[in-house]
């Protein structure tokens, strides 16, 4: 047959699937609204209280992280998009139809990964630059602002988008392993949110040595223009998060190949 299946065809198919369900469209919308809305709101709050802000706080004020603060909430929205992109196939049973059409599982997972990566990185970068610019516009005239002309600032905003994209892939990879939406989202939220809270109760030396490796703290390092104490540098943090993502994705892909659908 002249029309043999290839990766491009499966990417096209997965793109149609990604666009045609409400969970992705809603997820992306929530992501937009949360990041821009909260980023703008927090920036406005900082501006309106600037005159009462102590000198010590003013010295450590970071206009970049503050304008990107909405990401701390939005990261859950993108994670859920990644999780549902695969778990909804299992909960609805449509994975069987999908695999009958695309029996090559590596090809299927690759196509899904490509669709997810491309769409989320575009959306994430747009959102991150938009919320950064929104924050600086709010600060202007009152609070010190940052400029994209500064290399570290540009890097922070770019890596903020990459952080969100990698979290999406992490969610997707967890989905490949766990297959159940609710369980998967719980794990995702636990790792991002609960793990750091648990560490609050542990000895400070532990916090200082291990906390920097938590995904949420890696994200903080990535999107901050200055290195923080007991944190990895931005690029090291990026590499560590890439390794996490690659390992979980690798495990997901291996299980996907071996297990019955």
């Amino acid at each position: 047959m002249s029309s043999d299946q290839n990766l491009q065809a499966v990417v096209k198919s997965e793109w149609i699937k990604f666009r045609s369900v409400r969970s992705s469209v809603m997820g992306v919308s929530v992501f937009f609204v949360l990041t821009l809305g909260l980023g703008g709101l927090i920036s406005w709050a900082v501006r309106s209280h600037w005159s009462q802000t102590s000198y010590a706080d003013k010295v450590v004020f970071d206009p970049v992280s503050t304008s990107l603060a909405g990401i701390l909430f939005a990261q859950f929205a993108v994670g859920v998009i990644g999780v549902l992109f695969i778990t909804s196939e299992y909960s609805s049973g449509s994975i069987r139809t999908t695999l009958a059409a695309v029996p090559n599982r590596i090809r299927l997972v690759s196509a899904k990964l490509i669709v997810l990566l491309l769409s989320i990185i575009v959306v994430s970068e747009i959102v991150c630059f938009a919320t950064f610019l929104l924050g600086q516009a709010v600060f202007k005239g009152v609070v010190p602002t940052a400029s994209l002309g500064t290399a570290d600032v540009l890097r922070s905003v770019l890596l903020a988008g990459l952080y969100l994209t990698l979290l999406t892939v992490l969610g997707f990879s967890l989905g490949l392993i766990v297959r159940q939406s609710a369980a998967c989202i719980s794990i995702f939220v636990s790792v991002l949110l609960i793990l750091p809270i648990i560490f609050v109760f542990l000895p400070t030396s532990w916090q200082n040595s291990y906390e920097k490796y938590f995904p949420s703290e890696l994200g903080r390092s990535m999107m901050s223009p200055f290195p923080s104490a007991h944190h990895l540098g931005a690029w090291n943090a990026t590499v560590v998060l890439l390794i996490y993502t690659a390992v979980v994705f690798g495990a997901g892909l291996t299980l996907m190949r071996r297990r019955d659908a």
Binding site: M1, S3, S13, E14, I16, S20, G93, R96, T97, A100
Partner: peptide, 30 residues
């Protein structure tokens, strides 16, 4: 193009329209 199968009629994402479901399947096999 070689095998067509109907296993479980309800094994379709409930939020997708019939046309989009078929469009995605068609695209995957050119």
């Amino acid at each position: 193009h070689e095998v067509g199968a109907l296993l479980d009629a309800k094994a379709v994402h409930p939020g997708r329209t019939a046309r989009n479901h078929l469009r995605a399947l068609a695209a995957s096999n050119r």
